[in-house]
Design a protein around this nucleic acid. Structure first.
Lengths: 226, 226
DNA sequence: GGCCGACCGTCAGGATCTCGTAAGAGTTGG
DNA sequence: CCAACTCTTACGAGATCCTGACGGTCGGCC
């Protein structure tokens, strides 16, 4: 779910870092120089930037400075050994962490997770585990339990449930749910209707009288916190 | 007192590294080539291996591969400058860190400490022996037993089983398993499918109706704790 | 060296499950 | 009572998974 932008001119380094981050469950964007890094941030927005100090054209420090003009996005600096002074400067510019080359990709992933966790508090609820009373939805394990029993949910049902429970009390239109859960910008809204029904069948005590996944007439659906 | 095994064919390099590590409070073992490195590990067991890539006879990559067959011992690779491809390969083989020559001995000691710290912290899900009811998976001895009987597992099957049992309840995608168990960053995902099938043949009571190594539709596989 | 078996990765066919869609019945609000 | 909206059911297409088979590779053994 969280987007990470990796900026490094070395293709090999990028490849390794990107694959490790993907394995850690991150969406990853790439940029080979400062220009495209800034462009990517304008267009796509990342939740964190891994930024090499040494870049062709605009260097890493300048990229960091410009990013800071418009955004509070966390930055992790990649510095070569012995760039002690640059390291200090980088931190002064507001980098949230730094890693010296050569580094272990696994360590980098740990730092990314750590920084995101720190920064994540202010962001929207994107926790790995969301709960509502006796209901627990664990995204990492891909397990949802109700009163301790595992719910046999399909992927779509799981994603839908997770989204709704993560935002209790909010009424969503079918169109919004299609966009947020399905990732579609168009589509038949009855798709949502049917999936809500199937989900009720598994989540509600009495599916004909929904208590938690309720209909908001003329609007859509809402998750009522227990 | 952690044991560190230093493998390098250059006597001078070894001498320097060893003395620095001893100064840093480590017990140190030495080996001048791959053969004796593997022999040392069989007899003495080190908690970490500092491994030169270029070795006479069996080279460093091969040594790392063989070590990984029976052990999760952390490995720090020593690479000459410009061995970019080897570096990537080394990391894929599961090296925990790498240091490029020429390096500062002090830097190496810092990295040894760092890796040992990391390895020590993560020892819970990475214990040498993982169990689940009547199933015991012993990584150190490379033996898995079910109801007291030894399972005739191949290397791949063993690694897969071990990884799954070490993380019960977690749903893994084939891609994640390829990365974590196979160490690949790409590859045919049907490889995982087939190995899961073969593993079921040996682990499940009724392989056609898996109870422990279950498939999570649209996601991948999960180990259900007994 | 040459044979052999164990193991591995790949592939294709068939079985199974999920998802989106449509269509009719039911319900709500005006 | 009507129109708009929602619920329910069913079904076929497509995605996903299982299974068996095949060729290649590696190490051990003759």
């Amino acid at each position: 779910m969280p987007n990470v932008l990796v900026v490094d001119d070395d293709h090999t380094v990028r490849e390794v870092v990107v694959s490790y981050l993907r394995a850690g469950g991150h969406e990853v964007l790439e940029a080979g120089d400062g220009e495209s890094a800034l462009a990517t941030m304008r267009d796509a927005r990342a939740d964190l930037v891994v930024l090499d100090l040494m870049l062709p054209g605009i260097d890493g420090l300048e990229v960091a400075r410009r990013l800071r003009e418009t955004s509070d996005v966390p930055i992790i600096m990649l510095t070569a050994l012995g760039e002690e002074t640059d390291r200090v400067v980088g931190l002064k510019l507001g980098a949230d962490d730094y890693v010296t080359k050569p580094f272990s990709p696994r360590e980098l992933v740990l730092r990314v997770d750590s920084v995101l966790r720190r920064a994540g508090r202010a962001d929207e609820p994107d926790a790995s585990v969301v709960t509502d009373g006796d209901l627990v939805v664990d995204a990492a394990r891909h397990v949802a339990t109700l009163r301790g029993e595992r719910l046999p949910l399909t992927v779509r049902e799981f994603d839908l449930l997770r989204y709704l429970v993560a935002h209790p009390g909010v009424a969503w239109s079918r169109e919004q749910l299609l966009r947020e859960v399905w990732g579609w910008s168009f589509g038949d809204q009855s798709t949502v209707t049917v999936h809500v029904r199937r989900l009720r069948e598994k989540v509600e005590v009495d599916p004909t009288r929904p208590r938690r996944l309720v209909t908001v007439w003329g609007v859509g659906y809402r998750w009522e916190a227990a």
